[in-house]
Computed example of a mutant assay.
Amino acid sequence: MNITIYDVAREAGVSMATVSRVVNGNPNVKPVTRKKVLEVIDRLGYRPNAVARGLASKKTTTVGVIIPDISNIFYAELARGIEDIATMYKYNIILSNSDQNAEKEIHLIHTMLGKQVDGLVFMGGQISQEHIEEFEHSSVPVVLASAIEPTGKIPSVNIDYRQAAADAVAMLTDAGHTDIAFVASPLKDTINQHVLSGYYEALEAAGIEKKDELVIEGDYTYDSGIEAWSRLQELSSPPTAVFVNNDEMAVGVIHGAQDNGVHIPDELEVISFDSSRLALMVRPQLTSVVQPLYDIGAVAMRLLTKYMNKEKVETPIVVLPHHIEKRGSTK
């Protein structure tokens, strides 16, 4: 049986307004009445409906989080940062997977707003004009986490992806490599375009000619990393180093190379871009651009709480620092 506020009011012999005041911590209730109402709530097992409370208070203390794929270790670490800060500030999370599908992303934005959320944290690879319009017309604050939109109008938390990629490739050019491949994540995604720009920038700075055949587009997965190496090894001049856009594909590249008898890092050096827990699970461990994944999620959620609570926001576009963690996949 679903216990309602009406049941509590009737059992306690008070009005529904009094029950509501008790539930919401309103001090304008006599101690004796408050005690009686709380006893009835406990005895009946009443659980206040957050949305119904929100209609009265205009707040549900609920935040919507739209994420491409919670099973992906990259997004799982981001989501953990979001949830921990949400809990710290007494917010509940509604999390939905978008599967990197633009139509589903727009649908989820509408669904979240229909659930009376107080704010949205959005993660997605490709922010279109339709997304921007939805964010700008949203009735609640929106913050992007590990997602870039070109106008700079929507608050966001990221790293400098172009510079991070340039730093990683420069590490390989400084080691004397001239045939450096790039295994990219889908290049339709804005962040990945920034990473590609950084790759080309580092090659140009080292005076190395760009070769289209050394850029292989993957799809974030382990299998696409294996496939990328399969294509690279067939080149007349295979690469001596590979920069990979994420850890999962990098593991695929390493395993594909090892299956072909290539020794890592003596014959092939590999640098990945994420430094998720996966980077520590492969042997040799991955040298990687360290994105502070937990921090990106945590800072995005804290930024959202500022907007929801009308606090002063000095920097709506947050760029967190990155660094390269040298491990066993490079010399």
Rank of each mutant, 00 (worst) to 15 (best):
V29S: 03
E103D: 13
G114A: 06
H107I: 12
Q116M: 03
G54A: 01
V63D: 06
N28L: 10
L38E: 01
T111M: 09
K35T: 02
A86I: 14
S57F: 04
N101L: 04
I109W: 11
G13P: 09
V117T: 03
K30M: 11
D118Q: 00
K90Q: 13
L113H: 07
A79V: 12
V19G: 09
P48F: 03
N24K: 08
P68D: 14
P31L: 12
K35M: 06
S98G: 11
S20Y: 03
R34G: 02
D118P: 06
A50D: 05
I73H: 11
D118A: 09
A50L: 11
M112V: 13
T61M: 10
T33I: 13
F74I: 13
E105H: 03
K115R: 15
L108N: 08
S71G: 09
G25S: 07
A52F: 07
K30H: 11
K58Y: 09
A56D: 10
T60A: 03
G64Y: 07
I94D: 15
M16F: 00
S20A: 04
H107K: 15
I94A: 15
A50N: 03
R80Y: 13
Y75F: 07
V65H: 08
N101M: 10
S71W: 11
V65Q: 07
I94P: 14
P48Q: 00
